[in-house]
Deep mutational scan, measured.
Amino acid sequence: DTINITLPDGKTLTLTVTPEFTVKELAEEIARRLGLSPEDIKDTHNGKTLDPSLTLAEYGITPGSTITLEIK
């Protein structure tokens, strides 16, 4: 299953994830792909900052969802 990550420059990154991924694991994968530190990444969905300890499923993030990435 894939989700879309909207980057600060407007580009989109597509990642393969499972509903059990935590937001922290997602940030780590994004950081790895972009050459950043996971601590520099802030993920938001529907205007809410995502708690790193919760899973994508707990936020109702499903395949095809879009998450907005902010760099701290």
Rank of each mutant, 00 (worst) to 15 (best):
F21G: 04
T66P: 02
K42S: 13
T2Q: 10
A27S: 12
K42Y: 14
S65C: 11
V23K: 00
L50V: 09
T68M: 13
I61C: 06
P19K: 10
S65L: 06
T18Q: 06
L13E: 04
D51K: 04
L50W: 15
E25I: 03
P63K: 03
T22L: 04
R32W: 10
T2A: 08
E58M: 04
G60N: 05
N4I: 08
T2Y: 12
T2W: 14
H45F: 15
R32T: 07
T44P: 13
E20G: 08
K24C: 06
A31L: 06
N4S: 10
G35T: 03
V17D: 00
L36K: 08
L7T: 07
G64L: 03
T68Y: 14
L36M: 12
P8T: 11
L36A: 06
I61D: 00
E25L: 06
T12M: 11
L69Y: 03
I71Q: 06
P8C: 10
V17K: 00
F21W: 14
R33G: 04
R32F: 10
V23Q: 00
L15E: 00
P38V: 15
P8M: 10
L36W: 12
L36N: 05
G10N: 06
T12G: 05
T2P: 04
I5H: 01
K11A: 10
I30A: 02
G47I: 10
P38I: 15
L34K: 00
P63L: 06
T6D: 08
V23T: 02
G60H: 03
P19L: 08
R32D: 07
L36G: 07
A31C: 09
K42N: 08
A57T: 09
N4R: 11
I5W: 01
T14M: 10
T16A: 13
A27P: 00
L50A: 04
S65H: 07
D1N: 13
S53A: 11
L69S: 02
S65G: 05
E70F: 08
S37A: 12
E29M: 08
L26V: 05
T68R: 13
N46K: 03
S65K: 05
L50I: 14
G35P: 01
E25F: 04
N4H: 11
T6N: 14
P38T: 12
L56I: 09
T2K: 09
